[in-house]
Design a binder for these strands. Sequence first.
DNA 1: CATGAATGAGACTTCATTCAT
DNA 2: TATGAATGAAGTCTCATTCAT
Lengths: 221, 221, 221, 221
Amino acid sequence: MPSSPHQGDTSPRQRRKESRPQELLDAALALFAEKGYTATRAEEVARRAGVSKGTLYLYYPSKEELFKAVVRQNLGSLIAEGEELAGQFEGSTSELLAELLLTWWQRIGNTPAAGIHKIVLAEVRNFPELAQFYTDEVIVPADRLFSGAVQRGVDRGEFRPMPPHQVAHALMAPLIFMALHRHSFGACPVHGGVEVDAALMLRTHLDLVLRGLEVRVEHRQ
Amino acid sequence: MPSSPHQGDTSPRQRRKESRPQELLDAALALFAEKGYTATRAEEVARRAGVSKGTLYLYYPSKEELFKAVVRQNLGSLIAEGEELAGQFEGSTSELLAELLLTWWQRIGNTPAAGIHKIVLAEVRNFPELAQFYTDEVIVPADRLFSGAVQRGVDRGEFRPMPPHQVAHALMAPLIFMALHRHSFGACPVHGGVEVDAALMLRTHLDLVLRGLEVRVEHRQ
Amino acid sequence: MPSSPHQGDTSPRQRRKESRPQELLDAALALFAEKGYTATRAEEVARRAGVSKGTLYLYYPSKEELFKAVVRQNLGSLIAEGEELAGQFEGSTSELLAELLLTWWQRIGNTPAAGIHKIVLAEVRNFPELAQFYTDEVIVPADRLFSGAVQRGVDRGEFRPMPPHQVAHALMAPLIFMALHRHSFGACPVHGGVEVDAALMLRTHLDLVLRGLEVRVEHRQ
Amino acid sequence: MPSSPHQGDTSPRQRRKESRPQELLDAALALFAEKGYTATRAEEVARRAGVSKGTLYLYYPSKEELFKAVVRQNLGSLIAEGEELAGQFEGSTSELLAELLLTWWQRIGNTPAAGIHKIVLAEVRNFPELAQFYTDEVIVPADRLFSGAVQRGVDRGEFRPMPPHQVAHALMAPLIFMALHRHSFGACPVHGGVEVDAALMLRTHLDLVLRGLEVRVEHRQ
DNA sequence: CATGAATGAGACTTCATTCAT
DNA sequence: TATGAATGAAGTCTCATTCAT
């Protein structure tokens, strides 16, 4: 292999520096999701990322900035993929909604990043600016995406006319709630709890709601 | 002396003393729901209850015990009313479910006590014993109540056969989520957020899901 | 002694609370003067005042506020006494200046509060607002007092006409410098240093400068 | 290769390397004088000297050693020039003192190096060894120089007999104080402060004190 | 020699808890 | 009972110093 000995300007140390922020964000996400913002100690985040306390502050000037960075990173363009999907979808709206929910679950709900939603829910009142950010970046686009899809179904005569925002909420709530649950009770060892079979849950929910949306020919007799 | 000192046990002072624990629990619920467990200071709870820091510790030996007392008090027999309702209900299962959800919303979801669910969701991983308590007192009874009602509908031929636990989850999630929202984003001033009309939401959700549950004669080609 | 047992509403504890701020300010003055602002640890101040770290923060919200309180307390109305003295003084201006300098030395220079000048000198560039405060409260009044007295001497024909501000500076500088010295080298054990006999110094300085100010009949050969 | 690598020891790079210690000392002097020892950060010194943090430690093993080096460098032979001047001076002692004070002001007082005196004054109690060093290198020689000159005046019948050490103090204090001021309030932007005209101050001070020292024939009756 | 990422002791500050009154 | 001054453990953040490159 004719490669120069200098080919990599990413020495181990360099590479390390570049990946530090990500390692810290990952550690912080996990701990914030587990314990909440206030109960998570900065040193713990550092240790989980494999560095010392001081190193954390080399990359983030304060615990609060670290928190915001975690939120920002995990909320970036969550919805973009869904909007693209919806924009070019050709099939029936039921299939579209099924696709959107399944995708959301696989890409977000069933992922460590889902923890971000629990944190935001719990902490947003302590970080007022976060409320606006989350509203702009998550709530509004998500509502637009899902209520838009519902409206498409109504417009195409596939669905009964129903208030699209409320339907969107009914569509998303069980998934979000399941995601919250994973980072809450789902992570606690309890006896006799209600097991949540996510796959069955998803199928059932879709079956239920899509059926509820369908226009149907009145059955006679 | 014109008035007997013994004239009543409910002099303002007496009444005050007797209601201290309740006032402390109310103050604590409000603050825990607003800021979370760790970010709430004991002194603030005391001040909001109109007593001094020391007095708080006269009634609760520690912040943690206060927290558990708040949770315990607000989770007692949440479901009892629903179970009674369900036990003696004579109408259709659709009507029963509508009644149950509406009642839950009025008695719990749309109430300051709903904040308790946000706290528990956020903090349960820091208080493992709480997980069992909440599972036993809330999750299992609620699941029993709602999945039981669903099963009743299936048994009576009103509903399609569907997995009752999953349907129960789909039924409750939007309500719980709305309740969480009220204690989170709903309490933050944001511009351009998605307004949630609770009444319309409830009606739409019920319409959607009950229709989805209904048996219908397949219309054939 | 027929005194009621309730006569004092200043219980030991109460009295303690009232004197705490002063005890803390004294301790802080001593330590700031000894080590400087940055090198003095908050806990040290507390310990010297006989309380714990936390107690300090019950009275002053931060180290910086404590510092400002120390400065404020020790700079309040330093000059008032001198101005009164000068206002009603009837004797010769030489006597007035001697009186002013001696009084300054007894009341300020030769006092723990003199340490404040060393601190301010050393730290003022780190506390920009302090510069204005000290200018307004100390430098300007002091200059007005001393240059005013000099001017009086000139006006009354006792002194040669000389620039009063510069003379005021020349009058004060050796005293201030001696005060600074006390809180600096004067507190260090050195071998072979130059001993400063404050009383002789004062006498000599006055003798020298007052003689320098005097109008004198030209001595004829 | 058009230019020999050996062509000179004073290539920019070389010259740079050789002057590093001096650049570091200059940067350190400026920062110590501005902020004090404790409040000055090692990295800041390095940055101002145009090198990295690590490089600083290549030349000085610790911040404390750097500080001592700054002091040592700036206190070396401050007085030598004055002693030479005095040794061979032929004119009147008044002229000698005027010459000494003016020279001190030009060479030291009105110079960045004057900041060293402010630092030493402020920090000497935190660095006990410094006290001896400064006493030996500065205080004693300066006192010897100035009190020696005063004594010369007395011996030659030019001055009244007065305690020479005290007179020396009175001679130097206004100059030192003016120098301290330049590195303290003089560097702060304040409104309505007392402007110090150094040249006028010097002239006035000399006029005042030399006149105060002069022998004069008592005019009788 | 030079760099700057990394470290960890130590400083400031908070707050749950105690206890004398 | 009720108070609130006092405590000190613990958390956030800084910065002198080290060391692999």
